[in-house]
């Protein structure tokens, strides 16, 4: 399905909107990274009694690292979408101008002399639209990937809470605080990503 000019313009702005919102995700991912480092330090200090917490902190580090990487990829895709939709919009304008000229030059002696550029403009437009579609699909996948990871983070949070309850009372409050912050950050990321997907209202075409 082709996007008309208006929705393509809107889409171009929406992609920029997604990119802007991603700074919030980046901030939260950095928070997770910081909390993961705190947790690692705590695990090292607490020693054997909290060894079950180690895989959890490792996962938190991995999650924050992956999220930051995904956000960077999403930013690139959002930029690609902005560029592609703008090019497609220009291409669409060129095609419409040629069609209008064709309509107005029916009687002209050399009316067919711009058939080739007209054909090329249509071909370019089809290509731009394919690119746009590909980038949009990729953006959709990346956003979904972050969302899936944040769902997994929920599970990790529950496990972490159980583990935090079993550690020595000296460290319990610290671990619970770290888990709490991790939970909030994951929840915020998920909310932002859901908002991004809502903004895009992605179409498959």
């Amino acid at each position: 399905m082709e996007l008309n000019d208006e929705s393509r313009t809107t889409f171009f702005i929406r992609a920029v909107g997604v990119s802007a919102r991603l700074s919030a995700v980046l901030k939260e991912a950095k928070n997770i990274s910081l909390e993961a480092m705190n947790a690692k330090a705590l695990v090292a200090r607490a020693g054997e009694s909290v060894r079950t917490f180690k895989p959890i902190t490792d996962y938190m580090v991995e999650l924050s690292y992956d999220t930051i990487k995904l956000v960077e990829e999403i930013n690139t895709e959002a930029l690609n979408i902005s560029k592609s939709s703008l090019t497609a919009m220009r291409g669409s304008y060129a095609v419409s101008q040629y069609k209008k000229a064709k309509e107005n030059s029916k009687e002209a002696l050399y009316g067919d002399s711009f058939d080739k550029p007209m054909f090329n403009a249509q071909k370019d437009l089809d290509e731009f639209q394919k690119n746009l579609s590909r980038h949009t699909q990729r953006l959709h996948e990346l956003l979904q990937e972050i969302e899936t990871r944040m769902l997994a983070a929920n599970v990790v949070t529950s496990t972490s809470r159980l583990e935090a309850a079993t550690v020595s009372s000296v460290y319990q409050a610290n671990f619970e605080a770290i888990v709490g912050k991790f939970e909030v950050a994951a929840k915020n990321i998920r909310a932002t990503v859901m908002e991004c997907r809502k903004i895009l209202k992605l179409r498959r075409y």
């Binding site: 101008q97 309509e103 107005n104 050399y110």
Partner: peptide, 17 residues
């Protein structure tokens, strides 16, 4: 004006000229 110009020009010469 592009489309009007293009439509007008081809009354006089092939556009690629």
């Amino acid at each position: 004006l592009f489309s009007s110009m293009l439509a007008a020009i081809v009354h006089f010469m092939p556009v690629d000229q």
